[in-house]
Design a protein around this nucleic acid. Structure first.
Lengths: 218, 218
DNA sequence: TTGACGAGTTTTACGGCGTAAACATAGCAT
DNA sequence: ATGCTATGTTTACGCCGTAAAACTCGTCAA
């Protein structure tokens, strides 16, 4: 028994409310804390009640991915070049992923091919083809850009794992590498401190887009 | 009782043999099939026997990641430019990851900061600094390159999910998008067929490296 | 008014999971 | 011979996803 509600009383569940609660739960407690029972508790309901709105846990995870991806604003090429449009979209996707870091592992195995996303891809392909890319190359650009953003957040998550303070034995924290055996690594890690992730992302994103520009068939 | 071995008989387990069996099991049956009990069965042993060689399942997964990453050959800059060395390393890492596609999700959350890997990073930083990058920028390049490879395999895995044949309802397969609503997408997906992943990877990798080259402080 | 029905919820149950704790045996050091 | 340690098995616990069934409503036809 969860609260005072009797056996058949409606609890106002819906697919959307469930997905929202699930994302909230993971943001707060991490991916490992997401179980049907915990999620039910978050909503004041028994676990099995969720199955009337969502077929199984895998579909739940898919829905969460879709929900977070939808937070990114679609690319907009009005009054901007293809590269500016792509850059804005990449930044927007990055922000959406960074807002829910514990969900990132899901993105590696769950494509979010929503109608909305297909429209976004179509728009990017349009701008790219208009700029001189062959359709095949344009698709390469779009896929590569997505992968680039995904990879960046994954790596960044690993670097920041266990926070800047906690876990001195954390393998990913470079601060601990001995300067005598890895001088450049330790120096670069020290210099890296102030600017952090945003600067690296923009730097590499600009490089990638510039590279694409150079490869484009005029 | 697993076989005919009596209660205290040694079974020749070792951390390394366990990791190898685990990778083999996942390659054959997928990540979901990896449980301590199944892994024990693969080795002719009860699940709890593994805990004398590995502290817990999380450490097992870490070990598997390290093992697969170690399959990539370290960067070699002898007689080649920094960009050629980085390209070779990226390709080698890509091959290692593609050899164990079901392990890819693990790489998104588990850094593999082995001594071997730190040496590889130090070598890359050396080559980059010698080429005119500031240490901080050099680290950006190394991290971004790693993320790029990771992101590429993740996206590629999603595209190929459920194979080229099975799962016509698979959301990630672009072949099914209606040509009238997404003409460019459907055309690009058709053209994409022959060349596939390798061509896209090399195309985008070259773009990224060219972009880095242009950003380098002479 | 009533009675059947379907949607939404809880209850119960099952097999599998990671792993703590206790126990057993083999081989080695003394 | 004696005990110690390393390595295995057994048992047990609480959690997991979810199938099946029981319950309780609101709705709507007769």
């Amino acid at each position: 028994m969860v609260v005072s509600r009797a056996r058949g009383q409606h609890a106002g569940l819906s697919r959307d409310a469930i997905l929202e609660a699930a994302v909230r739960l993971v943001d707060r407690q991490g991916l490992a804390a997401l179980s049907m029972r915990q999620l039910g508790a978050e909503l004041g309901v028994e676990a099995m009640a969720l199955y009337h709105h969502i077929p199984n846990k895998s579909a739940l995870l898919d829905g969460m991915v879709e929900r977070v991806v939808a937070e990114a604003s679609p690319p907009d090429f009005d009054g901007s070049s293809w590269s500016e449009g792509l850059r804005d979209y990449a930044r927007s996707l990055l922000r959406a992923l960074e807002a829910h870091p514990d969900l990132v592992p899901l993105f590696m195995s769950r494509p979010a091919m929503t109608p909305r996303n297909l429209r976004a891809m179509e728009a990017m392909l349009g701008a790219l083809c208009a700029a001189g890319f062959e359709p095949r190359r344009a698709l390469d650009v779009v896929y590569s850009l997505t992968g680039f953003v995904l990879g960046h957040v994954a790596v960044q998550r690993q670097i920041e794992e266990a926070g800047p303070d906690g876990g001195a034995d954390s393998a990913a924290r470079l601060s601990g590498v001995p300067a005598d055996v890895h001088p450049l690594l330790s120096r670069a890690a020290r210099d890296d401190r102030p600017s952090g992730t945003a600067s690296r992302f923009d730097f590499a994103l600009d490089a990638l887009l510039a590279g694409f520009d150079a490869a484009r068939g005029v």
